[in-house]
Write a protein that binds this DNA or RNA. Structure first.
Lengths: 124, 124
DNA sequence: TTCTATATGATAATGACTATCATTACTATT
DNA sequence: AATAGTAATGATAGTCATTATCATATAGAA
């Protein structure tokens, strides 16, 4: 049984403070800055445990994982290729078409990852 | 100026032989089996060069990149979480909605990555 | 208090990928 | 044919995100 230990609670609280998309190393650094250092291996294990319990979500961006609150409504991401800004969006038509595509291909859908890349307003 | 050297041509030919989604190490191994060993660093550099020239495309799946022919029509991927099968699909409505979502958020779209996860027909 | 199970931290290890550098290959020029 | 310049190559060291290992600490049940 996966425990929600104090360390994990602290990680979860930090993630739940905002809509930020956290990298593991970023979390470890921020916790250290707040006088709550947690070993990087413990952060990784904690993130895995929290995700397994459905308390946070993650998505892969290039070669590293980003973590965010699971309590947000389902959404996908827009990423600016200039400044790295991540914005969220939700689009029911896309969701419906994804379900349709899965069915048409004989797949029983379990999830998806959609990232749209572009240049944001500020970087244009 | 990026050259299309013999090594790179061999890599390109292998990728163009099929619709397969190749990992770098897989390419190196297959070339070695065909008595055409290419150093892994050379494979990586070759893949980067071929992609820069628009001759192949890639997408990131978990912690590693997959490479495929660029001559395919644009498509996205369905991946079976049981057996790992990758299938391709194209859906104009999703493409259109992505453009709309980008515009609505003030983004000038440059690309996207969409992966739908599920369980395929065979693994149900 | 004791015992058991799990978490933790530090660090070594892993694996995908890249940098370095001596050497080789390619191509243009003479 | 020889030479020069440029880039590619291969081997391997290095980088970095992540995980495995192991000694120790902690939590909770009995």
């Amino acid at each position: 049984m996966i425990k929600l230990t104090q360390h994990r609670q602290v990680i979860l609280d930090l993630i739940n403070e905002s809509n930020h998309h956290w990298e593991a190393e970023e979390l470890a650094r921020t916790l250290a800055e707040r006088d709550h250092p947690i070993g990087i291996a413990t952060v990784y294990r904690g993130l895995a445990a929290l995700e397994a319990q459905g308390l946070i979500s993650s998505f892969q961006l290039a070669d590293r994982k980003r973590y965010e609150r699971a309590s947000k409504a389902h959404h996908d991401h827009l990423i600016c290729t200039e400044c790295g800004t991540i914005e969220e969006f939700s689009n029911d038509r896309i969701e419906q078409q994804q379900d349709l595509v899965a069915k048409e291909n004989g797949f029983s859908i379990t999830g998806h990852q959609l990232v749209i890349f572009g240049v944001c307003r500020k970087c244009s």
